Simulated assay, not measured.
Amino acid sequence: MSRPLSIAVAPYDRTLPLMAGLVPIAGVAPTYVTAPLEEIFARAFDEQAFDVTELSFSNYLYLTATTGCPYVGLPVFPSRAFRHSAVYIRTDRGIRGPRDLAGRLIGVREFSMTAALVARGVLEDDFGLRAAEVRWRYGPADSEDSKPIIRVRPNGVELEPLTGADNLSDALAEGALDALIAYKPPKAFLKGAPNIRRLFVDYPAIEADYARRTGIFPIMHLIGVRREIAEREPALCRHICDAFDTARRYAMARTQETQAPFTSLPWAPAEMARVSGILGGDFWRYGVQANRAAIEALCRYSFEQGIAPRKLTPEELFVPGALDWESTA
């Protein structure tokens, strides 16, 4: 008999095969839940609302290192993104490169969000700009955004509420901020507001170079399972990993189809080939060992930026029985 399981996850190409019933989970009768990611994260961390859920990697690190997280990780990473493109600046403040951000007012929705964690990590690793050298201001991303939940007061870092504007996008447009780290382009940028651009204009080339040099495709989110379920049913954890991996491989394979294209992009197979040439043929692979460099970077960033009080290891973050689990090529 199949056991019921509630699973909260965003509808990506690599998760939709699960949600559509094309890929089963052995021994499970799943109920899939989707909502804005901020809502999923809040309900998971604060209410333990789901049996299995997508989680912010950065906030998971913080909770694991401090008060404890009600979820334990599975080495399944449904969201990944390079974040050089996430840094936006005002062009009338004399900011010509990353080091010019020292001492500036920079906005961020949540200091602990993974997009900002990775962007700050890159700025320190490649350009020597430490998080503590910047004056951080937090607030809603735009006029339609909800008020952010502030879980972290970073050690040794100036972090205060935004003043002088109602939201980060308006603050950047009006000059109340010098720069902004955003997980999606701010509305002021999209509307063509004057004196706003990305810090790294040619970000695709810079991110590709970063990937080649480091071997890292940054992880944003992971899948977590409630601790009591993981402890009681270790075999279930591997079944969940297997199913998410089967869905991922389904999406990756179909993206390369030409007869009846799987995606709405007319040159998707060519783009897949180009990206594979940069990142490797199985660039979205799950598992701890295949992603150790990216996981260790997140652990280090969290500690260096004053979020986690100690540097965690990958072995502390995942279900013990899944530490040796790996994606199928």
Rank of each mutant, 00 (worst) to 15 (best):
A179C: 07
K184V: 13
Y203C: 08
L180C: 07
A182L: 05
G164Y: 00
A171K: 04
I150G: 04
R197D: 15
D145T: 11
Y138E: 09
N155W: 11
P161V: 02
K191T: 10
D170G: 04
A211V: 14
D145L: 05
R153K: 15
P186S: 02
V201P: 08
P140W: 02
R135D: 14
E133A: 12
P204D: 05
A188G: 07
R153Y: 03
A132K: 13
G164A: 00
Y183K: 13
E158F: 14
R151T: 14
I181R: 11
R151Q: 13
P186R: 05
A205S: 13
I181V: 15
D145W: 06
A205N: 09
R137G: 00
R212W: 11
F200K: 12
D166S: 15
G156L: 02
P194T: 07
L190A: 15
A208Q: 14
S169M: 04
Y210F: 15
S143W: 04
P194E: 06
A132W: 05
L190P: 04
A182F: 09
P186I: 05
A205I: 00
G192L: 02
R212H: 12
E144C: 02
P140L: 02
A179Q: 09
F127T: 06
A182H: 07
P148F: 12
E174L: 12
